[in-house]
Amino acid sequence: MKIDAHHHLWDLNAVEYPWLMEKGAVRFFGDPTPIQRNYLLPEYRADASAQGFSASVHIQVGAADPWAEAQWVQSVADQYPDWPLVQVVFCDLTANDLEYQLDRFQSLPSVRGVRQIVGRAPGEDAKTGTNKLLENPDFRNGLVAVGERGLSFDLQLLPELMEQTAEVLSQAPSTPVALCHAGSPHDRSAEGLSHWQDALSSLSKLPNVHCKLSGLGMFDHNWSAQSVAPIASTCLSQFGADRCMFGSNFPVDSLSSTYYELVSRLQELIPGAHQNSVFHNTAKRFYRFE
């Protein structure tokens, strides 16, 4: 049994996703045109099952109404009980009604954690201003509240923000954190990867932070096992296999590879002794699969 610790689903008739339906806008991960359609569990499951996966973690994906998205994902989990599906929801940790929002989300049995994106890509971050969350004491307090409730936090950011983020996370040591997309090493030059590696150590030193080997094709659509080998090896050496987990980031990463190509390339890079941890054990423990 393998667990995919990071993927998305969407039904454009059930939930509104403004970013997904924006026509003609090229994003940091590429042209979204091929994925501007319904992407439902049966399609995802066919690809994942063929590679030995039998459970997964749905990550929020920018719905106009996060509660509507969470309810819809719960309905999918209820509809397919033979496919264990848990979810990470969006929640603004700086909101005045944070406790109410968390109460409501935790009424859904599939909810395991929350995500509020700190950084996506340099150009987009300049427009959204999400980097400023790190300067907001309410964000830090929200991280603490999430951990006190037994929830985890999915962290998406850029290498340039890692050291500042580590200082914030050190004040919420009881909150389990999953670093999405290996920390988004967007500069794949030797110098860029060196800076990412150094910055990553500020997060990997925190025992509550885990790392997802996911989203490796977002900043390089021509990626290969060889090109991302330094990223995989660095994550494994800094976090250890017991704090690393695989995520497909489908269907977003379907823009750069098939599901088969994605899994086979990463399997090539992960030593056999570590594959059970990366493809199953870490995600099962972190996201509390029964």
Rank of each mutant, 00 (worst) to 15 (best):
A5M: 05
H7K: 04
D11M: 12
V15M: 04
E16N: 07
E16R: 14
G24L: 10
V26E: 07
F29D: 03
P32E: 13
P34D: 13
N38F: 06
E43F: 04
Y44H: 15
A46N: 15
A50C: 06
Q51F: 05
G52P: 11
F53G: 04
S54K: 15
P66F: 04
W67R: 13
A68W: 13
Q71Y: 02
Q71V: 13
V73A: 07
A77V: 12
D78R: 12
Q79K: 15
D82A: 13
C91I: 07
D92L: 04
L93Y: 10
D97R: 11
E99W: 00
Y100C: 00
Q101W: 06
Q101S: 05
D103R: 12
D103S: 08
F105M: 10
F105G: 04
S110L: 05
G113V: 06
G113P: 06
I117M: 11
V118F: 01
G119K: 02
R120A: 01
G123N: 09
E124M: 06
E124V: 02
T128Y: 11
T130D: 01
D138P: 00
D138Q: 14
R140D: 00
N141K: 14
G142C: 09
V146E: 09
G147M: 07
E148K: 15
E148M: 06
G150F: 11
L151Q: 08
L157D: 02
L158A: 01
P159M: 05
P159W: 04
P159F: 02
L161N: 11
L161H: 12
M162W: 01
E163P: 01
E163T: 11
V168H: 06
Q171M: 09
P173C: 06
T175D: 11
T175P: 09
G183V: 08
G183T: 13
P185D: 08
H186P: 00
R188G: 01
G192N: 09
G192V: 06
W196R: 11
Q197D: 13
L200G: 08
S201P: 01
S202W: 13
S202P: 01
L203P: 05
L206D: 10
L206P: 04
N208E: 10
V209N: 01
C211Q: 11
L213S: 08
G215H: 07
M218A: 09
M218Y: 03
F219N: 10
F219C: 03
D220Q: 10
W223F: 13
S224Y: 06
V228R: 08
A229I: 01
I231Y: 03
S233A: 13
L236S: 03
G240R: 07
S248T: 13
N249A: 05
N249H: 12
N249D: 15
S254Y: 07
T258H: 11
T258K: 12
E261P: 00
L262M: 12
R265I: 00
Q267S: 02
I270Y: 07
N276F: 03
S277Q: 15
H280W: 09
H280G: 00
T282A: 01
A283D: 05
A283Y: 05
